[in-house]
Structures are given as structure tokens and as C-alpha cells.
Amino acid sequence: MDAVRDVWEFLTTGDNWRGARGIWTLTRAHLHISFVASALALVLAVPPAVWLAHHRKAPVLSVAIANIGRAIPSFAIIALVFPISIQLGLGLGFWPTCVALVALGIPPLFVNTYAGVAGASREAVEAARGIGMTEGQVLRKVELPTALPLIIAGFRISAVQIVATATLGALVGYRCLGTLILEGLAQPTAARDRLLTGALLVAALAMAVDFVIDRAEPRLVPWTKRVR
């Protein structure tokens, strides 16, 4: 029970929350990079998936390529982008981490969007063409909205993985909740408070993001009745 007490003490010490190295600042930075990475993943994954799926192009190949993002370790991507980022004058921590997170976030979004658009009710699509929609309207008014539940599910997986993995940013000098873990590593083994608190806060943040998306979903796709 020492661990619980350590974490409790750390969290209830006001000084740990305040200031440039405090929990608030680290959490904000953690959310910031997660938000930027999720938004970029959305922009990079959804439009090509929608276009490819509407035209039924490269169903196997495109999904395989998107999945490479899953196969390459995020840490390796950070290491690869690190020197390039410095060369381009983009700094140490943020962009190398962000690129790795985007690569991590793309596959679930791409795969789900492709499946959602390609799997739109054939009858609804035939009816849409039959009543006089242009191809663009079929895509905008039928295929994309009916794919939305799957796209949201993909976004949810992406966002949770991104929040959990943003922790790695600490390794290349991006100050986020991972920094607490890193600082904990530097402490003597008996003092586990920082490491454990960092891990706990990252997990809590990921679950909070998951919860928010879960709550927002019925409002975004009111036609899907949930079976609970």
C-alpha cells in the first residue's frame, strides 16, 4: 500500500500542480500534442480513405500500407524524425513526437473509414443515384454520413492510442506527463511517486478522452440505436 500512499501524497501536494513543471502545465502540453496529432491523423487518413473507398480502389493494398504505421515502433519514428526536425529548425521535442503519433493514429482511422464508406448500404447508394444525386452528392449525402459511426469508432481508437503514446515525447525533451515518468526513473527506486503518478495520469487522461467520445457519439449519429 506504500505505492498508493506515495501517489496520494504527490497528488495532494499543491506545489506539484503549479508552475512551469507542475501537473497542470504538463497535462495541458500532453493534451495539446495529442490534439494536434489526432487532428492531423484525421485530415491525412479520412479524405484519401473516402476517395479510395468510393471508387473501390486498392482495397487490400491501401489498408496494408496504412497498417505499416501500426507496425513501426513509435519510438523508432521519433528517433528517425529527430535529426530531420533539428535540421529543419523545428526543434527537439514536439514535431518528432507528433509525427510518430500521427503515424500511430492514421491506421485505425483509415481502415475504419474505408470499411465504412465501402460498406455503405448498396441499396441506399443505388436509390441515391436513381433519384438523381451526382457522384459528389452520393458521397457527401449518403456514403460519408452512413460511414460516420465507423469513422467515430476509428477516431476513438486513434485518440486513445495517441494520448497514451504521447508519453514518449518526454524522451526527446517534450515536456508532458511522460516527463513525470522520466523524472521518476531518475529517482532512487524507493521513491516511486513521480513514476506512478505519471503513469496513472496518462491512463486517466486516455480514459477521459475515450469517455468524452463515447458520450458525444449518440449526438453525432442519432440514427444508430445502441444495444447495451
Partner: peptide
Amino acid sequence: GYVIQQIGLFPH
């Protein structure tokens, strides 16, 4: 007007 067997209403 166009009516098909599976109706094809827009589910959303």
C-alpha cells in the same frame, strides 16, 4: 421517380 425492391431508404 424510382422505387426499388430493397427500398434503400437513407438510414441516417
